[in-house]
């Protein structure tokens, strides 16, 4: 079944795409946690971990341009990270014409690297996992059934509602030009909520009519085999190994 939010999925049929969603979710969370755990100044370790995630992008055969474009989500924190050298405490250093906090400079740079690796890992997850698989994976990971059901309705209707809001905007601009007041825009959004609510009631009626008894059908995500778990978890394991080896080398080097 084609799914609207599957617009995020970039199907290339790679081995990463074929892994069950639950193994990918766990692997991504663990690899990001390992990156966050890596202490500042361990640039070598962070670079190696970044390279591992990039290797997964390559293994997924995702187009680089699309991946780079999706990294744009990060833009707001880039600003924050760039501000950090100017607001953090501690001893200062001169950087060209300005005086900045050393801790802030280090922290800002570390934050930028870690957040980028985190976003990249999440982009890989979204680009290799369809919405339905993702829900099945979350169900397999024992997310409460009510929450899975709510998420599935959300994903099913988010594109519908966004398109309706888009059509309302086009209609408004066609009648009144581009300069609409707050009341006009909000009136459309408020009306959309009323319609959404009524649609929710109709969906519930339709479900009851078809025998819904308070339990959604199981999404039938298959159990993952030990081999699948092993191949998914090899990514966080490698990231952790890099971290441990890096720490050991620092220890030996003094």
């Amino acid at each position: 079944m084609a799914h609207p939010v599957d617009g995020l999925l970039i199907p290339t049929g790679s081995a990463v795409h074929r892994l069950p969603a639950q193994t990918k979710i766990v692997a991504v969370v663990l690899v990001v946690a390992t990156v966050v755990l890596t202490p500042a100044r361990s640039w070598g370790v962070l670079a190696a971990q970044g390279a591992l995630v990039v290797a997964v992008v390559a293994a997924s055969r995702l187009p680089a341009a699309a991946v780079l474009r999706r990294l744009g989500v990060e833009a707001p924190f880039v600003v924050f990270a760039l501000l950090m050298p100017f607001v953090a405490a501690g001893p200062t250093t001169r950087l060209g014409p300005v005086t900045v906090s050393q801790a802030g400079l280090l922290g800002g740079a570390t934050l930028l690297v870690k957040a980028t690796v985190g976003v990249l890992a999440a982009v890989v997850l979204a680009a290799t996992t369809g919405a339905r698989e993702l829900l099945a994976g979350l169900e397999r990971l024992h997310l409460p059934a009510v929450l899975v059901a709510i998420l599935s309705f959300m994903l099913r209707y988010v594109v519908v509602i966004a398109e309706e809001l888009g059509r309302a905007r086009v209609a408004r601009e066609a009648r009144g030009g581009r300069r609409a007041g707050l009341a006009a825009v909000a009136g459309g959004v408020g009306a959309r909520f009323v319609r959404t609510y009524e649609r929710g009631e109709r969906v519930q009626q339709a479900m009851l009519a078809r025998g819904y008894a308070g339990r959604m059908p199981v999404l039938a995500g298959g159990a993952a085999t030990a081999a699948q778990w092993a191949s998914a978890l090899s990514l966080p394991a490698a990231a952790l190994l890099v971290l441990l080896v890096g720490r050991l080398l620092v220890g030996v080097g003094g």
């Binding site: 709510i150 309705f153 959300m154 509602i161 966004a162 959004v189 959404t196 929710g200 479900m207 959604m216």
Partner: peptide
């Protein structure tokens, strides 16, 4: 039913982009 909160979540998500 789960449809109403699900649709409300979709509404909040879509309204955040306006």
């Amino acid at each position: 039913g789960p449809a109403l909160p699900g649709l409300t979540a979709a509404f909040v998500f879509a309204a955040q982009m306006v």
